[in-house]
């Protein structure tokens, strides 16, 4: 059995800004969505900062729109895998850095700046979502 050990990340401490560091000893892999609160879906407008079109999950790093009285914040939205999104009509270019969009997501129950993405509405009104099967 092979357990991958992750290299130290001090190189990237300066890159992540205000994002909380939580170093891990091994790759997490595919996992349950139970950390997300699907009973309290939320919506935010944000600008895409980084697209990680990767297995087992895709992640989008976004900068939340600054509202009056709120500090700027970086969020990480997790979504299904490249296979599932490709079969749902997405491409790796559907959402790109710099795109401003509306994100509908299940927030992390912990209250930290992350969520599980369910739908994106692009500036031109196009909606991006996904399902495991064409009929579902």
């Amino acid at each position: 059995m092979i357990t991958r050990v992750r290299m130290p990340r001090k190189l990237f401490a300066s890159l992540v800004g205000g994002v909380t560091l939580a170093l891990a000893g091994a790759a997490f892999g595919h996992h349950s969505g139970a950390a997300y609160d699907f009973n309290h879906m939320a919506i935010m407008e944000a600008t895409v900062k980084q697209v990680n079109w990767t297995n087992p999950h895709i992640t989008f790093v976004v900068e939340k729109d600054v509202k009056a009285g709120e500090p700027a914040s970086t969020w990480v939205f997790e979504v299904s895998s490249p296979g599932v999104l490709t079969r749902s009509g997405w491409t790796k270019r559907s959402l790109q850095p710099g795109d401003h969009a509306t994100f509908r997501y299940a927030p992390l129950r912990s209250g930290t700046a992350g969520g599980f993405l369910r739908e994106v509405t692009l500036a031109n009104g196009q909606k991006l979502t996904f399902s495991f099967t064409p009929s579902g």
């Binding site: 990340r9 401490a13 997490f28 950390a35 990680n52 992640t59 990480v76 930290t112």
Partner: peptide
């Protein structure tokens, strides 16, 4: 998921650790 495209010191295209993933909060720990 733990990697991102980058360059090594020779300019070769390699994968390096993904800074976004330093935020372990996006995954249940």
């Amino acid at each position: 998921e733990d990697l991102v495209a980058g360059k090594d010191k020779f300019g070769n295209d390699v994968f390096i650790d993904n800074p976004q993933n330093a935020d372990g909060s996006v995954r249940p720990v």
